[in-house]
């Protein structure tokens, strides 16, 4: 599978994303944001971090980086796009995903382990989870408070577009005030996923959790199925 991870000025999780892909046997490529084509790629990852210092609004300036025009074209033609944290913010800013982000309700930057519930396991990104499974994946953000209007929320619910919700176990439930406890969503077509938690930080026992690994394995499984002429 040809995987590209976009590096914007201020990205900080791109190397972790590359490493996570290597752990499942892939050989991903870094794409500088000034490049103008994602031709030939099977998956584009928009990583976490602070693109352009998060000035103005997180993701608002990165959304106009040269590479984004082709990422948008790629997404609209059905290509897999995976935005993590700042990548999720970029996806909402460019309109590939609905909604927007506000400061966390407690105003604090939160970097902590977080429990999530897998709400939709029928996606290219989540087919290796069981629906309803609780997973622990860390969050790291100051502006992860997802907001959307009533109509938009209803559409997400009705179309099964909410992929992960923050839940209570022994860590706190909704950490940032996100509407309907939303931690991750997918577009209606199912090929563009955005999530605030960092699965690339949950792929090795030594760093506390391996619950993120299945996302990488899900995408590979989906890809193998496709290339063999399956779904």
């Amino acid at each position: 599978m040809k995987i590209g991870v976009v590096r914007f000025p201020g990205s900080s999780c791109e190397v972790d994303c590359l490493e996570a892909w290597r752990l499942v046997g892939e050989d991903p490529v870094m794409i500088w944001h000034q490049e103008t084509s994602v031709k030939g790629f099977d998956l584009i990852v928009l990583p976490g971090g602070f693109s352009y210092g998060n000035y103005l609004r997180p993701g608002s300036i990165a959304r106009y980086s040269p590479i984004m025009e082709d990422v948008i074209r790629f997404a609209k033609s059905g290509g897999l796009v995976w935005g993590i944290s700042n990548g999720f913010q970029i996806l909402t800013e460019c309109g590939l995903l609905p909604g927007a982000f506000l400061r966390n309700v407690g105003l604090r930057y939160i970097c902590a382990p977080q429990y999530l519930r897998v709400e939709n396991s029928d996606l290219p990104f989540t087919n290796q989870y069981e629906k309803g499974r609780l997973i622990q994946i860390p969050i790291s953000h100051g502006e992860g408070n997802y907001t959307i209007d009533d109509e938009g929320l209803k559409r997400l619910q009705d179309n099964n577009q909410i992929v992960f919700r923050y839940v209570n176990t022994d860590t706190s439930g909704n950490p940032n005030g996100s509407r309907d406890n939303i931690a991750g969503i997918v577009n209606k077509e199912g090929n563009v996923l955005g999530m605030m938690p960092h699965p690339e930080r949950a792929v090795e026992e030594i760093i506390g959790s391996v619950d993120g690994r299945e996302m990488f394995l899900s995408i590979l499984k989906h890809w193998e199925g496709r290339s063999q002429g399956g779904a």
Binding site: L102, R103, N104, V105, G106, L107, N145, T147, D149, G177
Partner: peptide
């Protein structure tokens, strides 16, 4: 400005 319907965590703190 934030739309009227949007909660403003910073404004509430101030």
């Amino acid at each position: 400005t934030l739309k009227k319907s949007i909660l403003d965590p910073q404004g509430s703190a101030a």
